[in-house]
Nucleic acid binder design. Structure first.
Lengths: 214, 214
DNA sequence: GTCTATATAATGATAGAC
DNA sequence: GTCTATCATTATATAGAC
């Protein structure tokens, strides 16, 4: 029995550190930093409170570790966009749908990041921008610019603004679902992300003005 | 000296109940429900903690009262939109600018509502939708529809989706300013809401596809 | 209506046995 | 690494004088 084989029977699933991180991510995402007690994390993770403090120096350290963990897992979203084939419209539509689906499938992480964004702490927001969103957003903008160079997209629109609008629409869908459900004019969309993406891309592509008739 | 004139010397400004509500709104907006202690509210309002419990039965009751107060104050935003003259494009541009300015000027209320939205409590979200957003959103959609009937706007776009997109873009600007500041491709916008609105309306109106060349 | 003083519970964090 | 037991602090909420 070599010493490296000794730890083959985890108490519940994964080692304690992972279970603590998973519990913390879930609870922080659901309720926010202040509403979550170390007691609650310990209970959900199936360890003692003191054990958490053995692995993480403070509640804040645990929160940051859970955040980094979630962000790291959330990064490779964009990887399929650049490889996608088809017209520019099709590729953008594909991205819009994939991005929204990603937000909804990883609801926990999305909420965690969203909470962090609205907290508005300058340093934390800078870290988020540079370490989490930066690359993906830049790649989305680059795709817009390449579309412009190829003439598939108006040359005089602001590429950053187009990307922003797309992300904004999806974030809004994600975070306002529960409210939209009770607004008569958009009820039909709040449960149908695919339909939402279709309408979004349609407007984004063609605008809302009537076609010229002269 | 009639009895109705007796209370003409407020301790700081407004009566205690108002000062408590103002303090609560500010602190809840800044930090969220759980991060705010009744002690902090009492200190900012210049009253004793016990006095707050005399006016409000619990911390939660205080929070709800502050929310309702803030929402009530935030309602009459839309009132100038319908009266505005000019082309449909001009009116929509005017609304986009006014709405974003409103969010930024009433940052406290905007944040308070935003926190409530992401909390996602079904009942609270329904109340928000029906009592706060409902009317204004419906009026915005109605304006879109009337624009469609007059031929100033494509008849086959979803009016609710256009309205959603407009609100989404503005909400996103408001809540992501601090992050956008560190995204290279949109830095130029995060401090210039007017420029943001202009780009937004341009894209919304004309779309991003190049004009037909045949 | 407003205060001081207090009750009671829960919080984040630590000590020290195993 | 994990636990039980405990610390000091702070929280919401109440009692009762004025």
């Amino acid at each position: 029995m070599s010493k490296s084989l000794a730890k083959a029977s985890p108490p519940t699933s994964g080692d304690a550190t992972e279970r603590i991180l998973a519990a913390a991510e879930k609870l922080f995402a659901e309720s926010g930093f202040d509403a979550v007690s170390m007691n609650a994390v310990a209970e959900l993770a199936g360890v003692s409170k003191a054990n958490i403090f053995h692995h993480f120096s403070s509640k804040n350290a645990l929160y940051l570790a859970a955040m980094r963990n979630a962000c790291r897992r959330s990064t490779p979203l964009m990887d399929n966009l650049e490889g996608t084939s088809g017209t520019f419209v099709e590729r953008l539509h594909h991205f819009a749908r994939a991005h929204l689906a990603h937000l909804l499938e990883n609801e926990q992480t999305s909420r965690l990041i969203q909470r962090e964004v609205i907290e508005n702490d300058p340093q934390r927001c800078q870290e988020l921008a540079e370490q989490v969103f930066g690359d993906n957003f830049a790649r989305l903008v680059a795709i817009m610019r390449s579309g412009q160079q190829r003439g598939e997209l108006r040359a005089d629109v602001d590429a950053g603004m187009v990307a922003t609008l797309l992300i904004a629409a999806n974030m809004f869908f994600f975070q306002s679902r529960e409210v939209s459900r009770h607004l008569p004019d958009v009820t039909h969309l709040s449960d149908d992300p695919a339909a939402y993406s279709k309408l979004l891309v349609d407007i984004l592509m063609h605008g809302i003005l009537p076609p010229k008739q002269s």
